[in-house]
Design a protein around this nucleic acid. Structure first.
Lengths: 347, 347
DNA sequence: TTGTAGGCGTTATCAT
DNA sequence: ATGATAACGCCTACAA
């Protein structure tokens, strides 16, 4: 038993009393200003703190100091490997900077997101990092921006991930460029007849990737791909591919050769749908995705994708958050095409 | 422009002043005790608060009230679908209970975990939910328990996920039972020669699943399976399966028929390793996993596994945390075998 | 080097 | 119904 039975509701005063000094001295001993404290006393204080299992009340510190050691992260959903990888990066970066991260999930609802930001603001975090859920044109958009602007004026910093058009520092994933190069690479492999499974146009990431892809095709002298719209999820990808398959002619002469889904979970759902429809992904129909999530290499055939350094994105986000960057600062994140077996040379 | 240019560092006193009332009244108007405030005043206060874009300082509230609206979640790693699904459940439950969740990742390091709990304690969360990283026999174990006990005596509640032997309320996933039934089901399908890829014995989850599986085999009159030990990750599963494959004889008469990996990410890594070694999973060697993560249905062949309602686990955890349960309370979570194509009837 | 005395933004008690 | 006033736990001038 390490001499404490009070259950550590120990307060700084308790520590001070136990050490035979004033609260001020105890505070100084515990924090940076230890220079101005007698060695003997600092030892006694540390000892007392340990004995009492003292842990400073962060809320009290926050109030006294006027700032917290917290960053807030809002994601669309933790389930999704895209976001959980980013979250991992944020968590790592936060740990390195000795910060605690509070996380909230918006489920892609702009209203929910707005509400989250509001309550988050109450925590007075050092920074708020927004990723994913932003949807163009939603009625709540202005309200969100206003909320964030107010937060910033109050001293907090805001970082967006992949929402370059908003007036905040941004980690910008090169979605359009990656998709464009993917299109080129696929054309290079010999593909000519494309379909794209994309999400609603309001979803910025989907739109950027789609447009980049089309640009790539156009530059190669090809026309617009066949388009199917679906939910931005695995289920969406599955449903879209099922429809494509039932429409028929996929493995035929002159039929669609390859389908690009705007993210990997959709692409993987699509592969399964094709398989369920009796088609062999890679052989009857090629498939490509975007993100290069971990499972891309574990599906069969391995999925061609555009690699995004998701963890690094998260780490950049907290760096950016801590750097007092000006609102227009943009940290670009490059993406690279990774060709795999799901898109073999056709025929 | 909604009439506020000060950047919302607005404090309660500001609101009160703007509304022409005292801080006390403003506080009452904003919170529950609104009953004892004139309708007119409560309206003025709300109006002022909105105009000033006021958001209560949660730290200040925490100090004044003596309690926060936060729960802390510590996981081994957000990347892992196992944990991210649990985290999703926790986030959902927290939202429902109007709580904010702060998340920390331990990377399976007991030291790091201990340190996390310490700093978390400083936040004075309503509850601390621990999942995954606990490792038996580590030197830090007692320290961790002591830390958590102190936290609890100070009024916080602790919830463990799948660490039934610790003196705290626990959400107990039926690992042993699920593995045992899986073994039975595989024997029922006709399999007789088993290998198991498991993690180090200190990892409780791995050990429970392994022992349950062996029990199932034993009950069927079969002897111990061939065992390979590996990291508790996708890479570990891959490496172990590579070794198994290079050892040879996998697809032969009398060779191993099926390998059970103690979680899905290992199993999926193993499938890829087999494929890379020229073996066809499901045909040359059957594979089974545990957890039934989302991608289990998207690998080919679809992975036989033991389904665990991970989101529900997370939700149960916060329920438990909020219920002032006694330290011995255990909420059991059932697991069910899900047979898929990765374990077809042999031969 | 140390202690005393505010003050941080809220809530809660106690008069009024 | 309302307003002073005293906490809450900590930090930081300022003074000694």
């Amino acid at each position: 038993m390490s001499g404490m039975q009070d259950g550590s509701k120990a307060t700084l005063r308790d520590v001070a009393r136990a050490a035979g000094v004033s609260a001020a001295t105890a505070s100084r001993a515990l924090n940076g200003s230890a220079r101005n404290v007698r060695q003997e006393n600092i030892a006694r204080v540390l000892e007392a703190a340990a004995a009492l299992n003292y842990e400073p009340h962060l809320s009290a510190q926050a109030i006294a100091r006027g700032s917290t050691s917290t960053v807030a992260l809002v994601v669309s959903g933790v389930d999704d490997p895209y976001f959980s990888s980013i979250a991992a990066g944020v968590a790592a970066g936060a740990e390195a900077a000795d910060l605690t991260v509070t996380m909230a999930v918006s489920d892609r609802s702009p209203e929910r997101e707005l509400q989250i930001v509001r309550t988050l603001r109450g925590h007075r975090p050092r920074a708020i990092i927004l990723t994913g859920s932003r949807i163009d044109g939603a009625g709540t958009r202005d309200a969100l921006v206003e909320e964030l602007a107010a937060y910033r004026t109050a001293g907090g910093s805001v970082v967006m991930i992949s929402q370059p058009e908003l007036p905040f520092p941004t980690v910008a994933i090169d979605n359009a460029g990656g998709a464009r190069r993917l299109a080129q690479a696929l054309v290079g492999r010999g593909y000519r007849r494309f379909a794209v499974i994309r999400a609603a146009d309001r979803i910025r990431t989907s739109r950027d990737r789609y447009q980049g892809f089309v640009t790539g095709l156009r530059e190669a002298g090809l026309r617009e791909p066949f388009v199917v719209e679906a939910e931005f999820t695995r289920a969406g990808g599955y449903a879209a591919a099922r429809d494509l398959a039932s429409r028929g002619g996929l493995a035929d002469e002159g039929g669609l050769e390859v389908v690009f889904a705007v993210n990997d979970v959709m692409a993987i759902g699509a592969m399964t749908a094709f398989r369920d429809a009796g088609l062999v992904p890679g052989a009857d129909v090629a498939v490509a995705g975007f993100d290069d999530i971990a499972s891309a290499v574990d599906v069969a055939p391995a999925l061609t994708s555009v690699s995004v350094p998701l963890r690094a994105v998260g780490e950049h986000a907290i760096e950016l958050a801590l750097s007092e960057a000006d609102p227009t600062r943009v940290v670009p994140v490059a993406t690279t095409v990774t060709l795999r077996e799901s898109t073999p040379p056709p025929r």
